[in-house]
């Protein structure tokens, strides 16, 4: 019985290992870069998942693409630019800071600030 259990666990662990380790990196640094990039890029097919999590075939192709680019020595910026050139800023979960997105970045702070100023003004007036 014990032996059967042992073998069962072994088989189970083996399958886990196989599922995770599709991409072989030469360094742990590359591996972290891969994990970081695939988690910060949006899958375009199922838009609420990142490329690391998505099971869509396109996400698989993009993982492969990112893997190859890391292997051939491309920097993170180069890889992100490569994808933005093709799919647009939509692929980024973190929108870039530029003229088109300035409202997106600052509006929450402006609203917060005006809310607080009004609150302070109102309380002072009440006293």
């Amino acid at each position: 019985m014990r032996i059967i259990l042992f073998l069962f666990t072994m088989v189970f662990f083996l399958s886990c290992y196989a599922a995770e380790d599709i991409y072989h990196f030469s360094s742990t640094e590359d591996q972290t870069r891969f994990a970081m990039l695939t988690s910060e890029l949006r899958c375009l097919v199922c838009q609420n998942q990142n490329i690391a999590e998505s099971n869509a075939p396109l996400a698989g192709d993009l993982r492969q693409q990112i893997f190859q680019q890391i292997q051939t020595g491309h920097s993170n910026q180069e890889i992100v630019d490569f994808l933005v050139d093709r799919y647009g800023n939509f692929i980024l979960y973190r929108p870039p800071f530029n003229a088109g997105t300035i409202g997106l970045w600052f509006l929450p702070f402006i609203l917060l600030f005006s809310g607080i100023s009004y609150l302070v003004y109102y309380i002072r007036k009440k006293r």
Partner: peptide, 12 residues
Amino acid sequence: TGNSAIDWGVYG
């Protein structure tokens, strides 16, 4: 392979 389609930004 779908590699050329990536260059065209195809996603579906």
